[in-house]
Amino acid sequence: MTLHGVLLALVFALFAAGGALAVFRAVRGPTILDRMIASDVLLTTTMLVLGAVMAVEGRDDLLPVLLVLAAGAAFATVAVARSVSKHDRQDPEGAGRDPLATVDDAQDALRSTRDQVDRLTPEDLDRDDLRPTGRDA
């Protein structure tokens, strides 16, 4: 076996080990973020393997596959990040609910905002642009 063959075997063995560890983390969890990071690592490893195959064999027909995998990974990461951030959002009034969760809560959020505006005094406003100055009332 040539040096080139040995290096290729080593590289693909390392890719396989990385993929196996990513699958282990995805199965084991325990949180959705652990699973998302593991799926990102697995997709990245898959893209690296495809890139290595393209480089070694001189193929350029796998480039669309790489682009689709990269776009899918990016969109999935953003989707999970947005989903998790919605669950982590704190209710500013401490009522234990998300005021933007449903249309039914919109009236309560509007009423709360109106109450906050009604409590503002002229000293709380900047006379140039009528925005709150940040001083506590």
Results as ranks from 00 to 15, higher is better:
residue 6 V to A: 01
residue 9 A to H: 05
residue 9 A to V: 04
residue 10 L to P: 02
residue 12 F to K: 04
residue 12 F to L: 14
residue 17 A to I: 08
residue 19 G to M: 08
residue 20 A to S: 03
residue 22 A to D: 12
residue 25 R to S: 13
residue 26 A to D: 05
residue 28 R to F: 07
residue 30 P to Y: 05
residue 31 T to I: 05
residue 32 I to A: 13
residue 34 D to V: 01
residue 34 D to Y: 03
residue 34 D to P: 08
residue 36 M to E: 09
residue 38 A to V: 04
residue 41 V to N: 04
residue 41 V to W: 04
residue 42 L to H: 02
residue 46 T to L: 11
residue 50 L to D: 00
residue 52 A to L: 11
residue 52 A to K: 06
residue 53 V to H: 00
residue 54 M to T: 09
residue 56 V to T: 09
residue 60 D to C: 03
residue 61 D to F: 14
residue 62 L to T: 09
residue 65 V to E: 11
residue 67 L to G: 14
residue 71 A to T: 03
residue 72 G to N: 01
residue 72 G to T: 00
residue 72 G to S: 00
residue 74 A to M: 11
residue 77 T to G: 06
residue 77 T to M: 04
residue 79 A to Q: 04
residue 80 V to G: 00
residue 84 V to C: 02
residue 84 V to W: 05
residue 86 K to R: 13
residue 87 H to I: 10
residue 89 R to L: 13
residue 89 R to E: 14
residue 89 R to K: 12
residue 91 D to S: 07
residue 92 P to H: 11
residue 94 G to K: 02
residue 97 R to F: 12
residue 101 A to F: 15
residue 104 D to N: 00
residue 107 Q to C: 01
residue 108 D to K: 07
residue 108 D to L: 09
residue 112 S to W: 14
residue 119 R to F: 06
residue 119 R to D: 13
residue 129 D to L: 01
residue 129 D to I: 00
residue 132 P to Q: 01
residue 133 T to Y: 15
residue 137 A to W: 10
